[in-house]
Design a protein around this nucleic acid. Structure first.
Length: 152
DNA sequence: GCCAACGTTGGC
DNA sequence: GCCAACGTTGGC
């Protein structure tokens, strides 16, 4: 059982967008960073839980919790020329990019903002808060997970 | 919109 | 394998 943080731009795909889907489940496509790819392909397991984080918006922060309901499989948008995530170097028999399926679990009772997270010494080692970290998927330790949710 | 901090690309 | 140029991320 691992914990994760998934970034999404709410203008593109918000926690409410996920919640509104018929099965409240969607594939997490468009990961085009090798480190993030390795996390989901090698380490992410069925039933893992993840913080849903809104980035690049007026109030960046943790807004909810989702669950991994399907482990990594090839990201088909990489071989779709019409997709913004199309990668001409991807090949079907040796897929370069992967995605997982995530299911909405719940929204937090309030947004735990980036600003707030930065104020706690317990979280200074958190990947999200390290300087210049732009990974869209990162692991969260059990300690960090519990601490963040205790702020709710 | 700015820009720092990255990651990737490609010439050499 | 080096590294300059370029593209992207994401807070502000």
């Amino acid at each position: 059982m691992n914990y994760w943080l998934l970034k999404s731009e709410p203008n593109t795909f918000s926690i409410d967008d996920l919640k509104k889907l018929p099965r409240q489940t969607d594939h997490w496509d468009g990961i085009r960073n090798y480190q993030a790819r390795n996390f989901i392909r090698d380490d992410m397991q069925l039933n893992d839980l993840a913080l849903f984080y809104h980035s690049n918006c007026t109030q960046p922060g943790v807004v909810g919790i989702v669950q991994i309901v399907r482990e990594a499989y090839p990201d088909y948008t990489a071989s779709d020329p019409r997709s913004p995530y199309f990668d001409p170097k991807n090949s079907a028999d040796n897929p370069r990019w992967y995605m997982v399926d995530v299911k909405f679990k719940r929204k937090l009772s309030r947004i735990i903002t980036l600003k707030e997270l930065k104020q706690h010494s317990e979280l200074v080692t958190m990947s999200l808060l390290k300087r210049g970290n732009r990974l869209s998927i990162m692991p969260v330790t059990t300690k960090e997970w519990r601490f963040i949710l205790s702020l709710e």
